[in-house]
């Protein structure tokens, strides 16, 4: 060691003279630190960490419970909506069926009435036709008598005309 004027124990860390006071103060300070740590600081940190872990666990459990409740509420809501929808659908179908039935009934009634009217009209037409045909026969016999009178100058027998008309008609 250059420039040191004290000879034998040159390197301070190896100087036994320093050992005793250093070890005494080391044991005092280390012991004090051990007491402070083991009696106060470490239990305190442990309780802080413990409290926090508990708080987190509780909060998570609480949040899970709330989530379960909200999910339940959402499911109930969904069920209510589905029920209402089904009800509405049934009501709509029922109404439609009822309306369909009513319309059908109306239509049938109207058709029946129309058919009846049609039948009546046809009967009337047939009657009128028959009547008209009757008239035609009378007109034809009259016309035939007139024609025969004009051509022959003498009236024709009623029986002959009727026979002739019947022959033509047949």
């Amino acid at each position: 060691m250059p420039g040191s004027g004290h000879g034998e124990t040159a390197f301070p860390p190896f100087d036994p003279v320093n050992f005793t006071p250093m070890l005494i103060w080391l044991s005092l300070s280390f012991g004090l630190l051990y007491l402070l740590m083991s009696k106060i600081a470490l239990p305190r940190v442990e309780s802080i960490l413990h409290t926090r872990a508990n708080k987190i666990t509780n909060d998570i459990a609480e949040a899970n419970a709330f989530r379960a409740r909200s999910e339940e509420a959402a499911a109930a809501h969904d069920r209510a909506i589905a029920g209402a929808k089904a009800k509405a659908l049934a009501l709509a179908q029922e109404t439609q069926a009822r309306l369909n039935a009513e319309t059908e009934a109306n239509r049938l009634a109207l058709e029946a009435e129309l058919n009846a009217r049609l039948a009546a009209s046809e009967t009337q037409i047939l009657a009128m036709k028959a009547k008209a045909m009757g008239n035609v026969e009378a007109i034809a016999s009259k016309a035939a008598a007139a024609i025969v009178l004009r051509i022959t100058g003498k009236p024709a027998g009623q029986e002959a005309i009727a026979t002739a008309i019947a022959t033509i008609k047949a």
Binding site: V17, W25, L26
Partner: peptide
């Protein structure tokens, strides 16, 4: 010899 030295001082500072 329990002299308070610079080593002791820094042990106390450390603690």
């Amino acid at each position: 010899d329990a002299s308070f030295t610079n080593a002791s001082l820094f042990m106390v500072i450390v603690v």
